[in-house]
Amino acid sequence: MSTLASAYTPSTTGHPVRQVLARRPELFTLMLLVALCAFVAAANPDFLRLATLFDLARASVVIGLFALGVFVILAAGGIDVSFTAIAALCMYGVTKGVVEFAPGLPLPVVFTLSIAIGLGLGLVNGFLVHHLRVPSLIVTIGTQYTFRGLLLTFIGTIWITTLPPQMDDFGKVALLTTTSSQGATIILPLFVLILPAVAVLTWWILRRTLLGRAIFAVGGSPAVAERLGYDLRSIHLFIFGYAGALAGLAGIIHACSNRQANPFDLVGSEIDVIAAVVLGGARITGGTGTVVGVVLGTLLVVVINNVLIMAGVPSTWQRVVVGAFILIAGAFMVNRRRA
């Protein structure tokens, strides 16, 4: 017994703080987030006003839903860059359909429709990845162009500035209200609750179901997972379908939140989302990461993109900051592996 008890100790050595961080990289994300918030708050105490926090929460929802979808795919060793195109198609297609054909369609049906279209497009991704055996990056670059092209060619290019009333109202339902420093009323919209709800669902699927562990198994080694009896086809269909459904949900929320539907919106923010996931401690090579990390990574990116400007950092510098953080986090992850 003595031989093995001593021989098993994992090779991580060094300072206890390092050891904890090596096991829980999302703590590192939390540290970055706290440091950043402290910096902004010190530079401009307005940051701590409820109004700012409400804005941050509102801005986190869409990017957070995207990030959770990407994370599920990344956990299985894949990548997706088509989710913004899916979201744009769902958002614009559904909004336009409601405006033109069914102005009185109840809100839950609108949401379900958008999610279902997203799911369908995601399944197309999953099907192609599985059956063509082409890397998911290539497949989703292809489908990103295709979905976007279909949207602009067949559905429309005209900005919808007046939403159907049920959608418009949904964006305005308040969970809480406050007043900004200028005296305007700022609301915390009810829909911000969707992000924590989906985060909990994603966490539950990944940690508590066989499917979740199978996703990580595939991220560890697809060949071994297949050999051990995991059904790769179901896993591929699920992860891309799930990410697609979340993109559909995010798209329709985006429209309700902005009270308009712009077909040219959303596409282009993929890198922000992937950055959020990676900053949350998930390795781009797959098989690792946590939902908590993804949520923290999302908050980090949202804070950088929205409030750095309050600390007097010019908005052109935001990208530099995101880039620097990714490099710091990346260097840290590499060291973690060597530790």
């Binding site: 508590r208 179901t209 066989l210 499917l211 979740g212 562990r213 199978a214 198994a217 051990l228 009896g229 995991y230 059904d231 179901s234 896993i235 699920f238």
Partner: peptide
């Protein structure tokens, strides 16, 4: 332990883990 759970579920992945 995962293989046991996979076999108990007859390969069906939509199964809650018995932790």
């Amino acid at each position: 332990g995962l293989s046991q759970q996979l076999v108990r579920a007859h390969g069906r992945l939509a199964t809650v883990l018995d932790r």
